[in-house]
Amino acid sequence: MTFLDFYEYSLIGLLLGGLYALIGLGFVLVYKATRVLNFAMGEFMMMGAYFYFSATVLMGLPWWAGVGIALGASAVLALGVERLVLRPLVGQPTISIVMATIGLASILHGTAVMVWGADQWRIEPIVPRAPFFLGDAMLPGQLVWGFGLASMIILGFVLFFRYARGGVAMRATATDPHTAMSLGIDAPRNTAITWVLAALISTIAGIMVGAMTNVSPELGLVGLAVIVVVILGGLDSIPGTIIAGLIIGWIESMSVAVFGSGVREIVPFAVILIIMMVRPFGLFGTPEIERL
């Protein structure tokens, strides 16, 4: 591998990592609010991409209307899921809720195949395709734009949680729902909002990934790979997720460069098996490891 290859693959990997960090943010939000690892996150991404596909390709609407419809439909879906599946399980052991999200993933995947078929569909990318040049490295335009957008969204969320009243209330609910409620915060409502925000993030990520690859029922598999990112990032840390996203993106891109594209789908999973031996609480997660 020449230095230029290394440089180019590294940059592509880091850009990809930005997207992973964005999807990871969805996991972290839900985990912080409810201590649940949401295995259906990838399926939310897939549904978002399909909503966008339906609006723009099937109904022929412009892209901004498509994004609006996709975000609206995902928000409704998330609210429905929260009300019908998660709220009845409040107070149940975490293991039950996690298994419910696995069941939910199965339902959403089946529904997508039923409604839109098992075929792959193309959607027109919103951002220009023209590549960027950084020195001698050629970077795919969509990836650069996607990275920029992902950074903006993540930054927005960080600021929201740090300074906005609603964000502070959500952090309070996540830390201790009982105290938050005694201070007049509507905890169930905040949990519902968290789910909606996570669904909105996944929708945007889903549209971006769908435009780069294809829209198919297997789009949700990306979500499973991102579970690796959030574990590495420590599950409850947003900065950790960003750095972990960049690391996993870089490793994935490098492995593809060295071993060929066949290994792409398993690299994150091979990495996590090693990480768990070394730093099980991730890079920046709270190191409150209970060795039980």
């Binding site: 419910a100 069941g103 089946g110 997508a112 078929g117």
Partner: peptide, 20 residues
């Protein structure tokens, strides 16, 4: 063609329904 997606939906619904 609906056999396999229907199976997935039913499996998922059984998991969620029984848990609740």
């Amino acid at each position: 063609v609906y056999v396999s997606p229907l199976r997935e939906i039913v499996f998922g619904a059984l998991i969620v329904g029984f848990l609740i």
